[in-house]
Amino acid sequence: MATLSRDEVARVAALARIDLSPTELDRLAGELEVIVQSVTRVSEVATPDVPATSHPLPLSNVFRADVPVAPLDRDEVLAGAPAALDGKFLVPQILGEEA
């Protein structure tokens, strides 16, 4: 099993969209290495014959009646947004190229 190097932590942090300072990267790499080594134990008993459980008390086919209900109040929702314009969320450009 791979170990969690500083480069690997930087790669995963980028996937998780979290900017880290160089100091944070150094510290996290050390801490995560220890944690990952500790949790690797699960493979000792996770043999192929054991089924996986994703949910403690699984339910299936949970539906509600197809009846419209009142949506959230738009102004209340937008009041909590970092920026809003004309009744909509105002966001930065989505794509990286020139706008």
Binding site: M1, E8, I18, I35, S43, V50, T53
Partner: peptide, 23 residues
């Protein structure tokens, strides 16, 4: 970061999949 790592390609079965079996 730990969760993203455990779910990332190549590690999923060893980590998350095994943990679900332990469950």
């Amino acid at each position: 970061i730990l969760g993203t790592y455990a779910l990332s390609a190549g590690y999923y079965d060893a980590y998350y999949g095994s943990a679900q079996k332990v469950r």
